[in-house]
Amino acid sequence: MSYTYEECKATADWLMAQTDIRPRIGIVCGSGLGGLANLLKDQVVFNYRDIPNFPQSTVHGHAGRLVFGTLKGRPCVCMQGRFHLYEGYPIQKITLPIRIFKLLGVDTVILTNAAGGLNQDFKVGDIMIMKDHINMPGFAGNNPLSGPNDERFGTRFPCMSDAYDRELQQLAMEVGQELGYGDFLREGVYCVLSGPSFETIAECRMLHRLGADAVGMSTVHEVIVARHCGMRVFALSLITNQAVMDYDSEEKANHEEVLQTGKQRSEQLERLVSTLVTRIEHNNIYA
């Protein structure tokens, strides 16, 4: 089921009729990272259930609110809670909010997620700047751009070799160093799986050999749609657990651990993102 341009536009128009804020930056909050939205001033808040055509968030740790406001004077819109394949939504529904972002006037999307670390040098609590991705559901034919293409959104065959904006990655690295986060700021490749079951040991080993540094269940579908729409993309993974790679290990991945790490590191992640947002303006990236 694809959403038409007209349906997306009707939702964007409905939102713009209720708020004067015209966001240039869209932020998507991952598991346990919804605190980012609380930093916005002059908030106008919509529950997902009240927004026409909008899906509902069903996961613990995802609030299910769209928050408009300003971050250090920059107009932003923030998704407090996102949607995942494992909730049973069609992939076009998961990515619908990104298209609505575009029609609201957003030109830069910042995505955050909680991920399992595959890179043995990564520690729990590390923040990984995403430089690339491996789209496993895409290999199996599950791509958000499947179906008819509407040229008003973007081209039929969008390029993904530059999916993650290098200038924004560099800027985030500089901001991270300034804030004293050098010890836990990394960069790497994120692999998406559909979930909701966590990965087996054999799967983790395979993904690591394929070049993935972290694994999760979100973000990539949204990135593909954002790039299709011509928006710039920056994404961060909070490494909330170390993937189990050894059959002798007693460790087990669990969602509570994910939320707990989110809580511990979230303040620093929020500071990194909010400082980055103000720098985007100063660097005149919009020009």
Rank of each mutant, 00 (worst) to 15 (best):
Y3G: 00
N284M: 06
V244W: 04
V258K: 00
T70F: 13
G81K: 00
V233G: 04
S161Q: 13
P158L: 05
T108P: 00
T112P: 02
M128Y: 03
S266V: 06
M217Y: 10
R232A: 09
N119S: 08
A140V: 03
G211N: 09
G117T: 07
S146C: 12
K131F: 12
I91V: 15
A63W: 03
G105V: 03
R65K: 15
G34D: 14
G125W: 05
G154C: 11
I201K: 11
K93A: 13
G125K: 08
A253D: 10
Y86H: 11
A243R: 04
C191W: 00
S194P: 13
Q43D: 07
H133I: 08
V220M: 10
G117V: 05
L193I: 15
L185W: 01
D20P: 03
M206A: 13
G34M: 04
Q264M: 13
N254L: 05
V220I: 15
S146N: 13
F234C: 15
E270P: 01
H60F: 08
L118S: 02
N283Q: 15
R209M: 13
I224M: 14
C204K: 00
F54T: 04
A114T: 09
V220F: 09
D126P: 08
T219V: 13
D121T: 15
V59C: 06
R271V: 09
I51V: 10
S2D: 09
P90T: 10
R265G: 01
M160R: 11
S146V: 07
F139R: 06
D42M: 07
A253G: 05
G182N: 07
T112N: 05
T219F: 04
Q80D: 08
F46A: 01
V124Y: 00
H208L: 07
I21P: 04
N113V: 06
A17F: 06
V77P: 10
H60C: 05
K41M: 12
D150F: 05
I98Y: 00
I98G: 01
T275S: 14
Q120P: 03
M130N: 13
E178G: 10
M130Y: 01
I91G: 00
V189D: 00
S218C: 05
N38L: 10
I51G: 02
S161F: 06
M160F: 14
V233D: 04
K252R: 15
R65A: 09
V277P: 03
Y181F: 15
T58D: 09
G30F: 04
I100R: 00
G117M: 05
K123F: 06
W14Y: 14
R152Y: 06
V189H: 03
L259C: 09
L207S: 01
D126M: 10
L145T: 08
L66G: 02
E174N: 14
F54R: 02
L210P: 03
Y286W: 15
A163C: 11
L118P: 00
G73E: 09
V124T: 14
N254H: 14
Q177N: 14
L33N: 02
